[in-house]
């Protein structure tokens, strides 16, 4: 059923103008990506720096991991808050990306409680939110001891 192989004459060619804008557009895209990379900023999405996991971490450094806990209306204490799309609509990396802002103004945590209520009205709702951070110490690339846990912010849900 398939047509015979096309001969050279059958190639759909581009006009000079069509070729020019295409090659220029490609060059512009590459230039934009190079700019975002050198600027080391992913603010220029989609031409931002591919900086996920790009930071080196010291072999003797610390590893920090932020998360959230909550007390609930039925009296459960400090249960994990689901920081992902189908839980609160806000991901853990997004909380970490705005950590300074959340610590400075814990009332922003209200948004997370509200989003949870909007997405899961049938579930046990949050009464108090805790923004937490675990810190692990590394020595020559090995994890040493247990993590140190700190409470960074607390918000009584309205």
């Amino acid at each position: 059923m398939s047509p015979p192989p096309a001969s050279q004459a059958d190639v759909h060619r581009l006009s000079r103008w069509s070729t020019s804008w295409r090659v220029l557009a490609a060059a512009a895209g590459i230039a934009a990506l190079a700019h975002g990379t050198v600027a080391d900023s992913d603010d220029f999405f989609p031409f931002g720096s591919m900086s996920q996991y790009a930071s080196a971490h010291e072999l003797d450094g610390q590893v920090r991991s932020a998360y959230m806990l909550a007390d609930t209306e039925t009296g459960r204490k400090q249960i994990p808050v689901p920081l992902h799309a189908t839980g609160t609509g806000i991901g853990r990396a997004e909380v970490e990306g705005q950590l300074g802002r959340l610590v400075e103004d814990p009332s922003l945590l209200q948004t997370i409680a509200d989003a949870y209520r909007a997405i899961h009205p049938e579930r046990d709702q949050f009464t108090v939110l805790y923004l937490m951070r675990d810190t692990y110490q590394l020595r020559d690339g090995y994890v040493t001891g247990r993590p140190v846990t700190a409470e960074l912010a607390r918000w009584v849900v309205r």
């Binding site: 990506l33 990379t37 050198v38 080391d40 720096s49 591919m50 900086s51 996920q52 996991y53 790009a54 930071s55 080196a56 971490h57 010291e58 072999l59 450094g61 590893v63 590394l138 690339g141 994890v143």
Partner: peptide, 25 residues
């Protein structure tokens, strides 16, 4: 782009490879 992002951010092309980044992850 990921390769160059590591270079730009850490000041040298291979500082990242010698670090504890996977441990961190």
């Amino acid at each position: 782009g990921s390769g160059f992002a590591k270079w730009v951010r850490n000041g040298s092309p291979f500082a990242w490879a010698n670090s504890a980044v996977f441990t961190w992850a």
